[in-house]
Every structure is written in C-alpha cells, then in structure tokens.
C-alpha cells in the first residue's frame, strides 16, 4: 500500500505538471475542453434548440446565459487522477489499458451531466449554481473516479491469476 501511495503521488504530480505545459494545453486540454462543450451542446439541443457552443463556451440564445468550461470542470484532472491510480496499482498492463479506457468514459459521461446540469442550474438560480459548481460536483466527480477505481481493483487478478476478465463497463459509477 505504501508503494502504491508513493507511486500514485509521484505519477499524479508528473502528469499534472505535464498538463500545465503550454504544449499539453494547446494540443490536449483545449481540444478536449472544446469537444466536451460541443458534445454537451449537441445533447442539449435535442430538447433545447436555442443553445450553441463556441469553443469552450455554451450559450443560451434565449436569455444570453453562458457557461465557460474551465480547468477543473473539463474532467482532465479527474482523468489524470484515475490514470495515476491505475498506473500505480499493481496489475497486468492489459487490465490497466482496458480499465482506463472504460474508466475515462465513465468519468466523462458524468462530467457531461455536470456541465449540462450546471448550464441549467445557472439559469435557474445563481446561488445554487455556485454551490453545485464549487463544492458538490467536485466531490461527485471524485466519488465517480473512486468508484471506477474500486470496480477496477476488484477485477484485477491476484498474483499468479491472470484468468480474471478485465473490468466490465462501470455503468454504476456514471448513474
């Protein structure tokens, strides 16, 4: 457990440091965030056509309210935490890769729910928006990461047992 903990902290610090570099921001974080805004908007327009995305901003044409998806809300950090936790935990590489791919999907699915819910919460009540944005959703996303990791850890084979299949889709975590 100590080895896992130390490795997790080191890997996370390195990944986070890399994320802050201009190169990573330009080629990874900005496209990721813009894609998140576009996907969220395309879902929203199924029931509310007066919504548009421009870069990382989602705007209502009806009342002009807009949200800008900033660092901390784009799910990048949550993804890095999940990646660091999976890299640090002793498991076959196949399990790490499959677990990470499915885990990222689970985290991002919930993150889309976060973005859309905040977009409408902000139009309804700004105080509720601030509360949900600054405190509640931050905790829920980390809870999602923890649950995905727990599901994954349960599926990791013990030493000498490589027959256990990789993690199943953690639908539970995104619900």
């Amino acid at each position: 457990m100590i080895r896992f903990f130390v490795l997790f902290v080191v890997v996370l610090a390195v990944l986070f440091g890399l994320e802050l570099t201009p190169w990573a921001q330009q080629w990874f974080v900005v496209p990721w965030t813009n894609a998140l805004a576009a996907i969220s908007t395309s879902i929203v327009t199924m029931f509310d056509p007066n919504v548009m995305a421009s870069g990382k901003v989602i705007r209502s044409a009806t009342n002009g309210f807009a949200v800008s998806i900033e660092a901390g809300c784009n799910g990048v950090e949550a993804t890095l935490v999940l990646l660091a936790a999976m890299l640090a935990f002793p498991a076959p590489w196949r399990h790490k890769v499959v677990g990470f791919v499915i885990g990222v999907l689970a985290v991002q699915l919930l993150n889309i729910v976060r973005v859309i819910s905040l977009f409408y919460l902000g139009q309804w009540n700004f105080e509720a928006f601030e509360w949900a944005h600054l405190y509640v959703w931050q905790g829920l996303i980390m809870l999602d990461v923890l649950i995905v990791w727990l599901i994954w850890v349960r599926r990791v084979p013990r030493d000498g047992d490589d027959r256990v299949p990789p993690a199943a889709p953690p639908a539970l975590a995104a619900s």
Partner: peptide
C-alpha cells in the same frame, strides 16, 4: 503550480486517498 495543484487536485484527491488508507 502550488495554487493549481492545491485547487484542482488536492481538495478532491486527499479525501479519497485518506479514505483508501
């Protein structure tokens, strides 16, 4: 870096790590 790490990572990760440990 300390601010970014202390606002984007630590507040959410520390409770999860503390709970696991």
């Amino acid at each position: 870096f300390a601010y970014q790490f202390g606002s984007l990572i630590l507040p959410a990760v520390v409770p999860a790590v503390a709970w696991v440990l």
